[in-house]
Design a protein around this nucleic acid. Structure first.
Lengths: 329, 329
DNA sequence: TAGGTCCGAGAAACCGATTACGCAACCATC
DNA sequence: GATGGTTGCGTAATCGGTTTCTCGGACCTA
């Protein structure tokens, strides 16, 4: 492993000059700098990131802490984050907190131990200890969920998306829309419920048909079943995420109900399979990749800029993608 | 940030002893060790990973270099890797090479610069410069594709899986199976084609119906179209991965052909949506999570053990999951 | 009691970069 | 021509741990 002294010797100069020439933040005679660069090139010198980070008290690693790596929404986010990170000379450590508070807090500790340059996190709950990062002055950007602490965040307009989706169902002619959403503790679940209720209110529909379940396939199935077993069952569903929607689809299928004919169906998240289900599913698409790039851009700014600039909040809009599952016959 | 000298002062001992006590690899008086641990606990001491890694000449980071982060196969692998890594005190840097040779080689450089403890990689091609890692004596485990270099790897029995899938189609009564697979340069694409051909040979079917396309939706659609436009078109499809299968589905749909009635269809990879397509898709399931844990386990062993132990190769079997798309009416 | 062995712990070197500090050369000003 | 300010570069301190080296004392043996 060739190190900086080797380059210095080759170029006939000191290590300080090599460092300055290669990081060109300081004044070095252009000719000398060229000689240094040539020497570095010739020897194939690669700076040791560990040494550099130790001295600088800051590595060039970002931690991206997401709640579930197998959810396509998060992988798209991750891709967006990574593209921007790499373009700015950072590397991304992907951490899968798995909806587990303990794991999440371990990763937050890790960020400190590795002296991460920054953290992007979709917090498990409002209890998430963002302040620990602030204590080590590690910049943070929060995604997907809002948070009380004064930090940058990027969110999607969940309520607005839910409103648009439910309005669409009603405009199609469905009379009794229901909402299958996530747990009350999840902010996105609540916001999507609220958007659904906004639409009902606007349309003068009194009966709220809401099921809160865990954000998984089983939850969707159970939620749909409980709603369909009511006295005046719903004729259409607004579902708060893709995993839930698969469960709802299962239950509908089991009861011989076909979306786009017997019931209406629209859900959050444009999962890659949504167009290929029969019938293709109407969705509220979240700009997942853009959430990633936006969050990453905020982080780059925050790292470069002053630490105490006012927090910036970005709310991205959703797109309504209409397919066949929501059609009223 | 509390550091090791603070702990030493608190415990009334030297930094060397603190280091030894906390890493308990050396003999320290148990009572003293307890005092040190108590002091560390009291002060909330967290070792600085950068300093440790610099001295040890090895960090506790793994690089996981995968070819496409949005493919569910790889996210499952990633999850498997991460679970084992974290259990062994490592953290995983997820690197998305995006089927791009340049990006891949940058990540390989990064592994050296960060003095990664190990690398798990699904190599872009046989040209992948694994040897650069060997030069820095960074342990490597290769996944998904085999490779000439003497390294550990974990693969799936692609050929066997393809054989089983095609045999199944033939046994169902389909007469003219075709194969839509990836580019010739991809080993998995070729192995799956070979398995398909093994089955044809065994059944005495002469006509090979094969389309090589890129491993994407568009490739699947184009491949299916070209096969269906032949004089004696296929009546069934063995498709080499899930993205291709979506394209094939599109093309079938466009021509009014329904899997499980007009044509047979089976594909590699049990994508999360496969059971929810109408009709549900029969698949050859790869044990993606287990590939991850296996690779990670090999890496842990390799890091701990001698560097020049003989390379170990693991081939995991596939599971045939039969749903409706492959049924012969 | 003297001499040898063993064990635990402290002092100091070390990992490889960045950077504070200081020196020398050069230029401009009075 | 002395003074003061720049500029360009080298020396050495520094980041925070781990590990080697060394030494003092306890223990054992003769």
């Amino acid at each position: 492993m060739v190190k900086i002294v080797d380059v210095a010797r080759e170029a006939g100069t000191s290590v300080a000059t090599v460092s300055r020439a290669l990081n060109n933040n300081d004044r070095v005679d252009p000719q000398l700098a060229a000689r240094v660069r040539a020497a570095a090139e010739k020897l194939g010198y690669r700076p040791n990131h560990l040494a550099r980070s130790l001295r600088r008290q800051r590595s060039n690693l970002w931690l991206l802490i997401i709640s579930d790596i197998e959810v396509s929404f998060f992988t798209s986010v991750a891709r967006g984050v990574e593209d921007i990170a790499v373009a700015n000379g950072y590397s991304v450590v992907l951490c899968n907190a798995d909806e587990d508070e303990t794991k999440e807090s371990q990763y937050i500790q890790l960020a400190a131990a590795e002296h991460a340059a920054g953290v992007i996190i979709s917090p498990h709950s409002t209890q998430t200890q963002i302040d620990r990062l602030a204590a080590d002055s590690i910049p943070v950007v929060v995604i997907d969920r809002s948070i009380a602490a004064p930090v940058d965040w990027v969110m999607v307009d969940s309520r607005g998306g839910a409103l648009a989706a439910t309005e669409h169902l009603i405009r199609q002619g469905w009379q009794r829309p229901a909402c299958v959403t996530g747990p009350r503790s999840a902010e996105t679940a609540m916001l999507r419920r609220l958007g659904y209720e906004d639409a009902l209110r606007a349309a003068g529909i009194r009966t709220r048909r809401v099921a809160h379940r865990s954000f998984h396939l089983d939850g969707g199935r159970a939620g749909a079943a409980s709603l369909l077993d009511r006295d005046r069952p719903p004729d259409s569903f607004f579902v708060a995420n893709a995993a839930l929607a698969l469960g709802v689809l299962q239950e509908l299928h089991a009861r011989g109900l076909r979306p786009g004919r017997d019931v209406g169906l629209i859900c959050f998240d444009d999962a890659p399979w949504a167009p290929f289900i029969d019938p293709p599913i109407s969705v509220v698409a979240q700009p997942a990749y853009r959430i990633g790039t936006q969050a990453a851009t905020l982080l780059v700014d925050r790292i470069g800029g002053t630490a105490d600039a006012a927090p910036r909040r970005v709310v991205l809009g959703t797109d309504l993608i209409l397919r066949e599952s929501s059609v009223h016959p």
